[in-house]
Design a protein around this nucleic acid. Structure first.
Lengths: 221, 221
DNA sequence: CCGCATCCGGGGCGATACTG
DNA sequence: CAGTATCGCCCCGGATGCGG
């Protein structure tokens, strides 16, 4: 991208990550961890293949993404975030928190969706209220692919994939699941909007926000 | 901007504020408060006038900026952030915090600078360690225009303008002043880099970071 | 099939000129 | 002062090709 030519921290940041698609590529790498070119592309419906390749090169040159030849069993390269790339997580969190206000209306006509995009609200809004209890996991899916939400020592983690023996399963329309995960709806209200939940309600209650917070919680401290 | 067409909070946010120059316009309005078209333009060296006008229209349509006809004495319109626009402040803070790593090398050849851009590091990194003491103010300038850094009940505030009787004055090269404000340099080291400080060192010590923090402090809690 | 590179049309952007 | 108008270019989107 053409530099703004301003000696200002925000302008310098935008010089590096202000290009179209760039932050969404970082989002995919944040969600997926080390992954293949095609895996990234699957999470970026609408991107032109040449643009993805070009952005990955730029991100590698900027020290945000590392490209690594995979060990023999896999015949391809893997992409992953560097330490500098992982430091973009608070920025993506803020971006999502601000953008959440545009989600309550539901998907616009033609909007694409991927289950993996639910990992962000899951980690952002769910908390383990009983960390001393045995770990639990919930499998959520919409459409083909699924994600796993599970308790961990550091807190609630979410990742694409499946769980062997999930304590609960969740499915439904994207906007209903998002509303449930972000605390806009409780389980009863979400069920009324078509959400299917199987398993003990206590599992979900252990993780859910306690009340209905404002759509944009006040900045921390 | 063309929509990403993804039902994801980050993508939706970028649909609104991902266009080139958009976040920098918000930055200027955050720094200046209600101001005229020309005032904004002065803080955005390099922008084409039609782009600024177009972006302001888009930001107004998105409910981020309000355009208001000024009262009679002034024969022009004023622009200011709406509540939704002010909610972008944490995002700009994160953007600046991440971009700060590119500032330590000093300005690139041809980089522009405005004193007002120092208001962000001043508010981000300075703290009033003696809030019960009488308020103090520091005037800082580089080149033509100056800013005022002053203590307030809510914490340290910085704004473009001048102080009537500043307790201290500060001037020097942009990168040296930034290093001083962000805690990368103490006063002695900054003076060695050409910073001029007049006034009691205690005034600056009252506000300065106590130690030399890492360039990117860990995310809160 | 994966991971791109190439090509081409259209629109966003940059620079300047111009106007009420 | 506060924009509008115009033009050229480059970035982007979409499709196709192609080597491993």
């Amino acid at each position: 991208m053409r530099s703004y030519g301003q000696y200002c921290a925000m302008a310098k940041a935008l010089d590096v990550i202000g290009d179209r698609w760039t932050l969404l590529i970082v989002r995919e790498l944040m969600v997926l961890g080390a992954c293949r070119y095609t895996d990234i592309r699957e999470g970026l419906p609408g991107i032109a293949t040449n643009l993805l390749a070009e952005r990955l090169r730029e991100l590698e040159a900027a020290g945000i993404v590392a490209r690594r030849e995979a060990p023999p069993p896999i015949a391809t390269a893997l992409y992953e975030l560097t330490a500098r790339g992982r430091q973009l997580e608070p920025l993506l969190d803020e971006l999502g928190s601000w953008g959440l206000q545009y989600m309550s209306a539901g998907p616009a006509p033609g909007d694409q969706f991927r289950s993996r995009w639910l990992t962000w609200p899951a980690q952002q809004f769910l908390t383990d209220h009983q960390p001393q209890e045995p770990p639990v996991s919930i499998e959520a899916q919409v459409g083909e692919d699924s994600i796993v939400i599970e308790t961990a020592p550091e807190g609630v983690r979410a990742r694409p994939g499946t769980a062997e023996h999930p304590d609960a399963t969740l499915s439904g329309a994207p906007h209903a699941l998002l509303a449930l995960l972000s605390g806009q709806l409780d389980l009863a209200a979400a069920r009324a909007k078509g959400v299917q939940y199987s398993g003990s309600p206590a599992v979900l209650r252990r993780l859910q926000p306690l009340a209905f917070p404002a759509s944009r919680p006040a900045a921390a401290s």
